[in-house]
Design a protein around this nucleic acid. Structure first.
Lengths: 348, 348
DNA sequence: ATTAGCACTCTCGATATGAGAGTGCTAATA
DNA sequence: TATTAGCACTCTCATATCGAGAGTGCTAAT
């Protein structure tokens, strides 16, 4: 699908239909286009063009005598070639201002990543009225900073894991042997001195290797360290930050219950979204998945605008907006882009 | 409203109406009652009784020629006097079994409170199809076990707070002075040795008092300790565990969007619910708030079944089920009762 | 005190109707 | 040849009408 497959006026008409449908969520008719967008021709001409666009698969009619509605392909063309691409910066001043203030505040939060992610999801959803999602750094790309163990009760130990990126995780462990705090400090000290600066996953495999090497005559300390580390770093993998499910219900797109329930389910079991975002996480720049392009069954009929945030060149995680197919792509792309860049900046 | 204000047969009719309305969510007519519940009289008689019950405010008619529907007052009477009170144990075996298995598992989780609460909300909602809520122990009733500080970067410190009940909280603090890990250990050591066993709030006020006492010549350590403790324990207060918003949308009661949106909003700003649960937390046993009895505006039209869980005699927090007014009170009361008792047991 | 019988009321689904919006096509026009 | 005016046509949506069904309240009989 190349940009040249449509002449200039057709593009203008397509853009007009997409934009006004995004705004009003009502099929747009030929008369309306001539009135609202001065294209210098009559409704009849527009009708002809629209009929052509329908033949090409960019538009469709809900019923014989309604206006036209963009198809997924129509949105796709709009996003790729018509959506003011490159100058999303020309958004309305209020939004820009709002995002600007937010990014400044974000940089102030500094290294409390969890806190930052909560802020980000909230900001994403409240500014857009879509669903904001942040996928935190995956264990394969978070860098071990240090781990500490706190003796809690005879057989309970709290593990606190810090990463270079500022993620704090804690977990209550049940241990079989009765450790003293000194034991725990030794184990932590060992792990901290040996493995600081590597990724969580790297360490896991290194420890396993180590276990094999020393096979019969391994140090008891190391065995313990390995076991306890494994347990401490086995956090639920399928977690991410979401916000805005309630706001999205206010959109006229979701006026019937069944849709809402579907979406809720999709978000609740997280798996589907996680899969999608992971796929997108390797790509460069802002990614847009429109409606039925979505590889994930449950999210058909929704669009996703996502972008990775990075530490230097290394991709860390993904932020995304999920909304109805007729979402305001310009706005969403602008937001996701600005905020993901801001997050990346805080890692410097 | 005393139990004697109705004769026996009237009570039977009221019970019949409430129970079948709870089951089918359809106004129940006189003929239906005679068919389904063998009360030994004709529809005409039932009609007379129903008319009386309507005069007394226990029932109402959606429109002239529909069956009767319980009013809030009707539910109230049912819950207080008719709802098999005292022998909720006679629930259907499957539910009992399910809860039994769950409580056993719960006791296995042991002292990881956060994990336990997540389990509890999930269990509450999935077994009932209502909204499950758990209010964790308030700071005035959690007992300080120990605090530890981990130096993260020059001006960042991670505070990890443990309570006797097994709540773990962590927080990234920005500190002005550059602490060494030794400084931090001294501060933590001071706090731990002095204040272990007291409630979080007690300690706060004690520290403030201490500051006043030593006024001019206070130990620098203490000043630091106070400041850092204050910051470390100022967690968001308005947090609790919720689950089941999505399931509740499946109930026919909420087939229209506006209701759902209302509820979502109420739950999102948490404040209203928190207020209500706090009010209920001082009472003994299972509390039931029905429909418009609800003091909280946003929750009108919903019913709440709540019970406190305790450590010994000391009330710690509240668990609750929130559902439509025509919720299955017997079931809800049974569940909330069983699970709150189980939580209390784990504290022993 | 209870009940059978009956007229009455109200909802709900099906059906009909007309206004309105928008199209496609044809023939005239620049 | 590309555009446009005009018009018949189609489809939706809101409204009105109608009858079946369910359930009531009342009255008179038991």
């Amino acid at each position: 699908m190349v940009i040249n497959m449509l002449d200039e006026r057709s593009k203008q008409v397509l853009r007009a239909v997409v934009q006004s449908y995004i705004n009003k969520l009502e099929p747009v008719g030929s008369r309306f286009v001539t009135k609202k967008y001065a294209l210098g021709c009559s409704p009849a001409t527009i009708r002809n063009i629209m009929a052509d666009l329908e033949d090409l698969g960019f538009l469709s009619q809900p019923h014989t005598s309604a206006g036209r509605v963009p198809t997924d392909k129509g949105y796709r063309f709009y996003v790729n070639f018509l959506g003011d691409a490159g100058n999303y910066g020309e958004q309305d001043a209020e939004l820009k201002d709002c995002i600007c203030r937010f990014t400044q505040r974000l940089e102030g939060i500094g290294s409390d990543l969890n806190g930052m992610f909560v802020e980000v999801t909230n900001a994403l959803s409240s500014m857009s009225n879509y669903i904001g999602v942040v996928m935190p750094p995956r264990p394969e790309s978070t860098t071990f900073n240090r781990i500490d163990f706190i003796r809690y009760k005879a057989d309970k130990v709290v593990a606190v894991l810090l990463t270079d990126e500022g993620v704090i995780k804690n977990k209550m462990l049940s241990v079989d042997a009765a450790f003293t705090q000194e034991d725990l400090n030794r184990i932590a000290g060992y792990l901290n001195s040996e493995y600081s600066g590597r990724t969580i996953d790297e360490i896991k495999s290194m420890l396993v290797k180590k276990m094999r090497q020393e096979k019969a005559a391994w140090d008891k300390l190391i065995t313990r360290a390995i076991k306890i580390y494994e347990e401490a770093t086995s956090f639920a993998e399928d977690d991410f930050f979401v916000s805005g499910l309630y706001d999205v219900m206010g959109l006229p797109d979701f006026s019937d219950m069944s849709r809402i329930r579907e979406i809720s389910r999709a978000i609740k079991d997280k798996h589907a979204i996680l899969k999608l975002l992971e796929e997108l996480s390797n790509a460069e720049g802002v990614q847009v998945v429109i409606g039925n392009e979505n590889p994930v069954e449950e999210l058909r009929g929704l669009s996703v605008v996502a972008s990775t945030y990075k530490e230097g060149e290394r991709p860390m995680g993904v932020i995304a907006l999920i909304g109805p197919t007729r979402m305001d792509y310009s706005k969403a792309i602008y937001m996701v882009d600005a905020i993901s860049k801001c997050i990346s900046r805080t890692f410097e």
